[in-house]
Every structure is written in structure tokens, then in C-alpha cells.
Design a binder for these strands. Structure first.
Lengths: 213, 213
DNA sequence: CTCCAAAAGATAATAATTTCACAATATTTA
DNA sequence: TAAATATTGTGAAATTATTATCTTTTGGAG
């Protein structure tokens, strides 16, 4: 029983993958049902919040029983569009780019990595986890020919906007940005900024907030 | 004029680094003052939200002028504890671990990377960006001897909890976790989970939310 | 020197999010 | 078959976060 949701708040979209993560884990342990209370205990969110979140999308639970783990997993996959095949490139084949090329989460979520791109000649021609490293000069034709949906941006911050402008001209649909500079993109391009050092900042704040300074 | 803040909401701690990012950028352009309105335009938050956020920590602005860029930069550094020297290790010297070893944000924020750790014998003994890769067997004595504050966890998810238990026994203070499994840590250890694939999930949700499924 | 404009800081209003509490319902047990 | 129990789904209440508005201060123009 699924609803067509109006507009889902970001806070909820942030939590869904975390629910999913635990569900998948216990599915592997052959646990068939889980209550919101139990899921709460393992994810750190309150049980009523979890029930509310899930009810945004439909009524998946079974009273006095809880949620069917496999079924809920599948529902979240559908909600998140994990079953839809999406084409992907990584721009910037440095350490971070290569690390992401090995990220098993990509395949799991329906992403097909088609290529990495870099300017360094000693990288071009190599292959990472089965995907070729190409020259950034080929970006525009490649995106058009292969109909690429999403680009992961792991280039140095200095060239981030320049590259962004290029791939937007080539009609990229979404960008997952790992650079440090806030990018400017038109409204029709979906941008997800991965502020990697935010976590670091929070950690040191919390660790030392009571220090004299 | 600084306040000692009671308990800062996470949403604010998330925004501070983004303000800081832009401030640093315009500081390099020798811009001396910025209004909340201007900062709002560049960060995407509203001006009154920015003023409110900053007022949590003190009154840094100058009426009819705006904020002194250098001064505000410095204040955020102080708030975030970026000036405090912190010792750091990376556990798991795979692609992600190595990528993070090169992350310039570490030094900038006062982190001193002391070593990486791995189980792979062909990695042990090598050096990444000036830091040695050591055997995980040395973890406990190293953490104790070098008085390590924070560990970055970039190991396979399967061994994440095991490693976590070990470093907690060695009195680690904080963990920045890149694995996929929700870790269990005691209250006195600060845990920051970097849910790397969340961004990916959100992106595909937004890209395809109107698709029939 | 006075008035005007700019912009912070403070307060009030609104909106969003989370929790609470409970009715409804399915399951199990006696 | 009836009572007891578990647990969802949900409206209302509480809390938290954001925006809008107002007040005050400061600097600059006339």
C-alpha cells in the first residue's frame, strides 16, 4: 500500500538510508519481522519518528507484529529509486575518485560507472575497478553519447566550477560534489554537496567544546 | 565579545563550516567586511538565520558595516577548536584511507596525522603523504604512547565493530566513521558517522521521484 | 551637526519537526 | 471464544528551527 508522496522533507530522505542499512543487515541474519521500537534501538531515532517517516510513503507495518523486513527493504529500494539503472561518471581520478570507484554502494543502488576522467596523462588509459580513465577532453561527447545521468566531482576545488559548467552544457542531470567550493548550477540540475570536512569540524567541536580558549 | 554557549544544535554546527568556507574564500580576495545579506546570497541560507547562528556564540558584527571577515574567520576557528592541535590516525589504508590522508582539511583544522594502520602486509611499512602505514597489531600501544585523540575508520564494514572495541580499550576520544555499519560506542567516546552513500540516495530520489514504479 | 541609510541584534510570528498518547487491530493464549 | 498483549497508524501537543519584523546603532552625506 503505497502513497504518492507530495514533497518529502530532506530530514526524512536522510533517515531512510539509515533504516535501510539496518534492515539489510538483519535481513541477512534471516530476521523476518522488526518492530519500530527495535529499529529505533539500533538506529538511534525514536520509534514514533520511524513510524511517521514510513507512513509518509504508505502503510507497510502489520499491527502487533511490526514490519516485514524483506518487504520494507524492497519498499525503500523502490522509494529511493535503487532499482532504476542510472549511468555515472567520476571526474577526477585521484585518490578520492578511485576510492569511490570501488564503493560497492554504487552498484547496489543501481549506478553503472561508465568511466573516470582526469587531466593527468599517466592516469589516462588505465582502468579502475573495470572502468576506464579517459581524458577530460572527451567529457562532453562521452556524456552525450552514453547519456550519463550523474557525475561525481572529485577534482581540485579550483577547477570545480569550470568543469561543472562544461558538464551542464553536456546535459548532465545530477552532480554529487566532493569539492570545497559551493557550486552554482541551474535549477534543473540536481546538486548534492558532500561536505566531507563538516564531520571533522563537528567532531573537534564536541571533543573540545569545554576547553578554555 | 564571546558567549559560552549552552548546547549548540547540530543544524548550526553543520552550517558554521559552510560560512567559514565562504569567509576564507573572500578573505583571500582581501574583502574586509561582509554583510549577512551578502553571505546569505553565497551560502544559500537566509540572512537572519546567519545572524542568529552567529549570535549563538557572541556579537561579532558591526552595525551598518557587517562582519569583519578576518575576525569572523578567526572566531569560527576558535569556536570549532581548529586552533587546538589534535592527534589523528587512519585505520584502513585502502583507497578511502589514503584519500583522506591527503585531505588538506586535516592540517587546516589542527589535525596531525600520526599514522595509518592496515592488515595488508604489502602496505605495512609504506608511507602516505609523510605518515607511515603500520600493522593493526600495533594499534593499542601506538594510541596509548602517542596519545591519539581521533581515529578515522575506513576499514571494511565487517571488522568495523571489532576495531572500534579495540581502540576504545586504548582510550580513543573520538571516531570519524566511514563504514556502513552503525557502530556501538560508550557515551564518553564521540562518534561522527559519515554516511557517504546518503548523498547518493538523495540524488537518485530527487532525480527519479516522478518516475512510475 | 542633523538627517538618512545600512545593517546588526532582538523579538515576535510562522513553519517544520518530533514526541506523546491513544484508538484500532491483529495475534496469541487460556 | 474471549481476554490479554503487542504494535501500528495517527491526531494533538510540544518542541525546535526559520523567517519576518522591529529597534538600535553606526557611519556617512549634506
Amino acid at each position: 500500500m503505497r502513497k504518492t508522496p507530495p514533497e518529502i522533507p530532506d530530514v526524512i530522505l536522510n533517515r531512510l538510508p539509515l533504516y535501510y542499512k539496518h534492515l539489510k543487515k538483519i535481513k541477512n541474519k534471516n530476521i523476518e519481522y522488526i518492530s519500530s521500537e527495535e529499529l529505533a534501538k539500533h538506529t538511534g531515532f525514536s520509534s514514533s519518528l520511524i513510524r511517521k517517516d514510513l507512513n509518509y510513503f504508505g502503510t507497510f507495518g502489520k499491527k502487533s507484529y511490526g514490519y516485514d523486513v524483506s518487504c520494507l527493504c524492497r519498499q525503500i529500494q523502490l522509494i529511493m529509486g535503487m532499482h532504476i539503472s542510472k549511468t555515472l561518471i567520476i571526474i577526477g581520478a585521484g585518490n578520492m575518485g578511485q576510492a569511490l570507484a570501488f564503493n560497492s554502494g554504487l552498484n547496489e543502488r543501481g549506478y553503472k560507472l561508465k568511466a573516470l576522467f582526469d587531466v593527468k596523462v599517466d592516469l589516462i588509459g588505465k582502468s579502475i575497478n573495470g572502468s576506464p580513465i579517459l581524458s577530460t577532453e572527451e567529457l562532453i561527447p562521452f556524456i552525450k553519447k552514453e547519456d550519463i545521468d550523474i557525475a561525481i566531482l572529485t577534482v581540485p576545488s579550483e577547477v570545480a566550477q569550470e568543469i561543472t559548467d562544461i558538464i551542464i552544457r553536456a546535459n548532465i542531470k545530477g552532480i554529487w560534489d566532493f569539492t570545497e567550493i559551493p557550486l552554482k548550477v541551474p535549477d534543473h540540475v540536481f546538486l548534492e554537496e558532500q561536505h566531507i570536512n563538516e564531520g571533522l569540524c563537528k567532531l573537534s567541536y564536541k571533543l573540545f567544546q569545554n576547553h578554555p580558549y
